[in-house]
Amino acid sequence: MAQAHKYGDNIDTDVIIPARYLASQDHKELASHCMEDIDKDFHAKIKDGDIIVAGLNFGCGSSREHAPVAIKASGISCVIAKSFARIFYRNAINIGLAILECPEASEKIDDKDIIEIDFNTGVITNKTKNETYQAEPFPEFIKNMIDKGGLMASLKEK
């Protein structure tokens, strides 16, 4: 039972994890401050497996890897957005946070909708509304990287 938590366009890395917490590398501590500047209840309300649904350019701003780390450590299983900023996109893949680009899902999913995702097919099912949306599947090379267990693992294999 993954619940959707909905946000707008241009969610930047400074609100995902404010720089005042970057002196820490502790995943739990980072998670405890995730999104707090735009949603102070975020940490308390997220249950393991929940998803974030957002608009355009999610993760814009700084290159801090602490941003996808904080989201993942919060228990979020996937971020669905209309589009992602490029450094965030790379970072999420590298650390193993699932992300899907799907403008239709981003528009139609409402806050608190119950969502199911099939990562093999890219099909997103909205159980609350009885709808399905097709996300863009990962390109082949990224699938390979994820299959091997992320960037570092794929390099070690060589």
């Binding site: 290159s63 890897e65 450094i87 970072n91 590298n94 650390i95 090379f141 992320g150 960037l151 570092m152």
Partner: peptide, 18 residues
């Protein structure tokens, strides 16, 4: 261009990136 820390850590070891 900017990248994240895992990309950078890998590049420190191998000297290339995608």
């Amino acid at each position: 261009t900017g990248v994240g820390s895992t990309d950078l850590g890998a590049a420190m070891a191998v000297g290339y990136t995608w």
